[in-house]
Structures are given as structure tokens and as C-alpha cells.
Simulated assay, not measured.
Amino acid sequence: MLKITDLELLVGGVAHLAAINASFQPGTLTTILGRTGAGKTTLMRAIAGLIAPDRGQILLDGTGWTRLPPWKRPVAMVTQQFINYPHLNVRDNVAFPLVRAGVAKADAAARAEAALARVGLAAMVDRRPSALSGGQQQRVAIARALVKKAPVLLLDEPFVNLDYNLREAFRKDLVDLLAVETGTVVLYASTDPREALQMGDQIVLLADGRIVQSGSPRDVFANPASLTAARVVNDPPINPIPFHQNGVADFGALGQQAITLPSGAYTLGLRASDIRAGGPNQARVTLTEVTGSETLTHLSLNGLDLVMQEKSVVLRSPGDVVGVHLDLHKGLVFGADGQRAGV
């Protein structure tokens, strides 16, 4: 088990990691989800020993890593960039960490070829990285990480530089590959909520260097503990609508959920998919984004900026007026402190 306790890292007086406490079991894939700058890469670099935390501990099966140099940590890491050795062929790129660890060259080559076969590159073992596509180069990097058989595997947004179709294909392939790594703790960093929710056995939400929630993907998505967690785990971002106990602006009663709340100011978090075209509220279009087969329409409604998500391609222009319906009963209620209320 990989265990992190009270981990903290300050840079120029600013906390890049703060009070990180987490445990990760072998044989599980945990997605670390957060916006750019949330601390995902910093956390992985701390685990790998590439940066030193100011306080806290990192332990693997009870053995402390805090003072262990990176080359002594049994960690494999794949980063966003295609980091391969240009002067070596694909086989030797994958075999390199084994040879460096003292494995006989013939044995290292055989293990490298087996790893390359697992990632679909069996026919390319003699090529140089420059002769491969970007996706193939990243597969080489993944094979080099897998061949080490390290108990901790860190994947820092490994597909972020690939196009959409390649990312979709690799995502499934990677999950299948990792399913047999039953003795490995796998951490996968992502800025994409859909990717994180689909891939992981568990999910950890990071914001401003802090863990704001963790658990199963289903539970974290359905029951975000705070407005911050709801913003991290939803894409498009959740719509925050301020209201008081008896209603939401001019949109009518919120329902039984609001009636049972104490007096005070609250925020209703409404997912973009819970706003539908065709309703009594007249909203003005400010921007339309077509993303594949979906349309995100940015709206201005009674002084509120909202985003509506539709499962089709709908062309609208800024300034158009569209009637919308808000499924307020599906909203998530948060108190003035940002924490979930009424649950």
C-alpha cells in the first residue's frame, strides 16, 4: 500500500500541496482529477522523489520514502511528453531501465519485446523513435514503464498531447493493460472529468493543492461534498445559482429540498445537462460551442451566466433569444461556506 500523510510543499510561501492524506491499494487505478495548477504533477513528482516536500511522509508498505533519492524508489512514471532516447531503437528504449538495473542484455531485450507486444508495437522494435507517430512514441514510453514491474506506476496526463480519437482508443487499451497489474499502485492524473470518471477504480479531487474529496467515481460525481468538488468533477462546469430559502431568484420554488433548509443564503449547483431548450425562461445566447456531437450554449438569464449542454449539434448566434427550462429539483445545494447542505 502507498500511504501519504500530512504532505506539504511550499513554494515562495504559497502551498502547492497542503495536508495531503491518502492511501492507495495495489491493483487499483486511482485517477487524480484537478484543473491545471491544482497540484497533480507536483504530487506525482513528490512521490517519485523529483521534488522534496517540506513536511509529511510517503510510505510504501510501511517503508518511508521521504529521504530516499529518486533512483532508489521503485517507481515508474510516464509524463505528458514523449520522452524517448532518439539514438536508441524502440527495443533498446524499453530495455534501458532494465539494463541500467543490471539485467542481462538478452533478458532485458526479451522482456522489452514482450512489453512492446502488449502495447501493440511488436512489429516496430527495430525502429528509431523519430520513425514513429506521436501516439506510437507514447506507447513506447508506457511499455518502458510497464517493463520495470515497479510497485508504483505514475501516469501524468500521458495522452494530453494526442488528438481526440487516439486518446479515446488509448484510454481503453490502457485500462485493459493495467487490469493485469494486480500488484501495482497506479495513479493517473487528468484534467478531464469524463476520463477520470470512466477510468478509475477510485477518484481523488484536487484543488489548490488540497484533496477536496475522494471515493468511488459514482459516489463523488453524484454526491460532491462541496461546491469546489462539484466544479472539479463536472465538465462543463456546474452552474452556480445563488438563492435564499424560499426560492431561486425569479425561477420559482426550489422544492422540498429548499423548504427544509434554515434561513440564509445558498448556492444551487445545476449541471449543464439539467438545463433544456424549450421553456418559459427567456435567455440570451452569448456563445455557442459545438464539441463533437454536443452543443454547449452559454446563456445570460436574469443576470446569471449559465451553460446549457445538448446532445446534438445546434447552431445559435450571440444575441439569439432561446426559451429554457431549468430542472431545479436536480440541483445540488451548498451553504454559504461552500459545503453541501440539506443532505
Score class of each variant (00 low, 15 high):
residue 46 A to L: 05
residue 103 V to F: 02
residue 40 K to V: 01
residue 286 T to M: 06
residue 259 I to L: 12
residue 171 R to W: 04
residue 117 A to K: 13
residue 290 V to N: 06
residue 120 G to W: 02
residue 308 M to Q: 14
residue 324 V to G: 11
residue 142 I to E: 11
residue 254 L to V: 09
residue 299 L to H: 08
residue 110 A to C: 05
residue 337 D to P: 10
residue 198 Q to H: 10
residue 154 L to P: 08
residue 16 H to V: 04
residue 107 D to G: 02
residue 165 N to D: 07
residue 170 F to A: 13
residue 97 P to G: 03
residue 167 R to S: 05
residue 197 L to M: 09
residue 209 G to I: 02
residue 165 N to S: 13
residue 331 G to K: 08
residue 126 D to C: 13
residue 29 L to R: 13
residue 103 V to K: 10
residue 4 I to L: 03
residue 233 V to F: 11
residue 222 A to E: 15
residue 219 D to G: 12
residue 315 L to R: 15
residue 87 H to Q: 15
residue 216 S to Y: 06
residue 218 R to M: 11
residue 180 V to H: 02
residue 89 N to F: 10
residue 141 A to M: 13
residue 10 L to P: 01
residue 304 L to M: 09
residue 228 T to R: 14
residue 226 S to E: 07
residue 186 V to W: 00
residue 197 L to R: 05
residue 91 R to L: 13
residue 220 V to A: 10
residue 206 L to M: 02
residue 48 A to G: 06
residue 41 T to F: 08
residue 234 N to P: 08
residue 146 L to S: 12
residue 122 A to S: 10
residue 9 L to V: 04
residue 67 R to M: 05
residue 127 R to L: 14
residue 33 L to C: 07
residue 206 L to Q: 03
residue 124 M to P: 01
residue 253 A to W: 12
residue 203 I to F: 03
residue 274 D to R: 14
residue 132 L to P: 11
residue 96 F to L: 14
residue 300 S to H: 09
residue 111 R to E: 07
residue 14 V to Q: 13
residue 341 A to C: 08
residue 279 G to D: 05
residue 189 A to H: 04
residue 168 E to N: 13
residue 173 D to I: 01
residue 312 S to V: 07
residue 332 L to F: 10
residue 20 I to N: 05
residue 220 V to C: 11
residue 139 R to Q: 06
residue 234 N to L: 06
residue 96 F to T: 07
residue 23 S to R: 15
residue 247 G to V: 04
residue 148 K to G: 00
residue 318 P to M: 12
residue 133 S to V: 11
residue 124 M to H: 15
residue 204 V to L: 04
residue 113 E to R: 14
residue 316 R to Y: 03
residue 323 G to R: 12
residue 339 Q to M: 12
residue 18 A to P: 00
residue 316 R to W: 08
residue 299 L to C: 08
residue 36 T to N: 14
residue 51 I to R: 10
residue 274 D to F: 08
residue 88 L to R: 14
residue 201 D to Y: 03
residue 210 R to S: 01
residue 12 G to P: 04
residue 196 A to Y: 07
residue 55 R to I: 00
residue 87 H to S: 14
residue 333 V to E: 03
residue 269 G to H: 04
